[in-house]
Design a protein around this nucleic acid. Structure first.
Lengths: 100, 100
DNA sequence: ACAAAATATTTATATATCTAGAATTATAGA
DNA sequence: TCTATAATTCTAGATATATAAATATTTTGT
């Protein structure tokens, strides 16, 4: 868990929003076609529609967020679902409180 | 208090270090010539020596950190002392815990 | 008023980030 | 196997950040 790497992710409004949306997926996204729950998170397309940026930009953002450990991808057929890694997010906040 | 603005500040190791050093100035800096306490923080020159970057870079960093509300400047003669704004730092961490 | 010290600002270059379009890859269905 | 869909990766241009040298400003001491 790297403070500066995660802070860099959080320095962009869209990425912060994605994290917020993923906290309550049923509130921010329509139901998926293939599955009836959000246990593995939300597919890239839905996040893209919500954010209003290009598909490649969102995909790049999600990769960076995954690289930083903030979200976890799960593949379901053609779709990639992303969900938050609550442990990492919590550890980051705790780390800030401790170190900062 | 803007999450992305403060996160941007925290995305740089030197700036994070400055905040950490300013938490315990007596541990990380020599005593000042003109005053015998760190109540108003630490002068720019000491921070620059400790960080090992150029004077202009450190001054730029400190300005940005002040702009984001993280530190407070106090002028003492020729010197500018910078100290943490604990309330803002705490509000940022609390804000993250709440919103994120 | 002048010189020196501390800091801030301006200017400039190298690198990184933002963002999208095009090309590529992965998967499911016909 | 061919096609359509979803997502990733590559490429590229515009903007932002990192960093320092040079210059300007502020303040003190002579």
């Amino acid at each position: 868990m790297d403070i500066t790497e995660i802070s860099q992710i959080l320095s962009n409004t869209t990425r912060v929003n994605i994290l917020k949306w993923l906290k309550l997926p049923e509130k921010h996204f329509p139901p998926h076609q293939d599955i009836d729950h959000f246990d593995d998170g939300v597919c890239v397309g839905y996040i893209q529609d919500k954010a209003g940026l290009s598909q490649s930009t969102i995909s790049t953002y999600l990769s960076a967020m995954q690289q930083a450990g903030l979200i976890i991808p799960t593949r379901h057929g053609k779709w990639t679902y992303y969900r938050r890694d609550e442990a990492v997010i919590q550890a980051y906040i705790d780390g800030l409180k401790q170190e900062l």
